[in-house]
Simulated assay, not measured.
Amino acid sequence: MYASVRTYRFSPVYIQEISEKLQDMFVPLLEQMEGFISYDWITTPDGQGIGVCVFRDEEGLRESIHLAADFRKVHFSHIGMTTPEIIVGSVGAHGVVPEQIAPTSKKNREDRPTH
Rank of each mutant, 00 (worst) to 15 (best):
S11F: 06
S11K: 07
S11W: 05
P12S: 05
P12N: 03
V13Q: 15
V13W: 13
Y14S: 15
Q16N: 14
Q16H: 14
Q16V: 14
E17L: 15
I18P: 03
S19I: 08
E20M: 12
E20V: 14
E20Q: 15
E20C: 11
E20L: 13
D24S: 14
M25I: 12
M25W: 12
M25V: 10
F26A: 01
F26E: 01
V27C: 03
P28M: 08
P28I: 06
L29K: 15
L29W: 06
L29I: 11
L30A: 04
Q32A: 07
Q32I: 03
M33P: 02
M33W: 00
E34K: 07
G35S: 04
G35Y: 03
G35D: 03
G35P: 06
F36A: 00
F36S: 05
I37R: 03
S38V: 05
S38C: 05
Y39S: 12
W41T: 14
T43Q: 12
T43E: 08
P45Q: 12
P45T: 13
P45I: 11
G47M: 01
G47R: 04
G51M: 01
V52Y: 03
C53P: 00
F55A: 02
F55I: 00
R56A: 00
R56N: 00
R56T: 02
E58V: 04
E58Y: 06
E59F: 01
G60H: 00
G60I: 05
L61K: 02
L61V: 00
L61Y: 00
L61N: 01
E63V: 07
S64M: 09
H66W: 09
L67K: 08
A68Q: 03
A69L: 05
A69I: 00
A69P: 00
D70A: 13
R72Y: 03
R72T: 03
K73M: 09
K73A: 08
V74I: 13
V74F: 11
H75Q: 13
H75P: 05
H75C: 08
S77T: 09
S77Q: 10
S77A: 15
I79N: 08
I79K: 06
G80P: 07
G80W: 06
M81H: 04
T82E: 01
T83N: 09
T83E: 04
I86V: 15
I86F: 07
I86S: 04
I86H: 03
I87K: 15
I87V: 13
V88M: 05
S90W: 05
V91M: 09
G92H: 12
A93D: 12
G95P: 08
G95D: 09
V96M: 09
P98G: 08
P98A: 10
E99M: 11
Q100S: 14
I101W: 06
I101K: 10
A102I: 09
A102S: 10
P103A: 08
T104S: 14
S105D: 05
S105L: 11
S105G: 03
K106D: 14
K106R: 14
K107G: 13
E110M: 14
E110A: 14
E110T: 14
D111N: 14
D111S: 15
R112S: 15
R112T: 13
R112D: 12
R112A: 15
R112F: 10
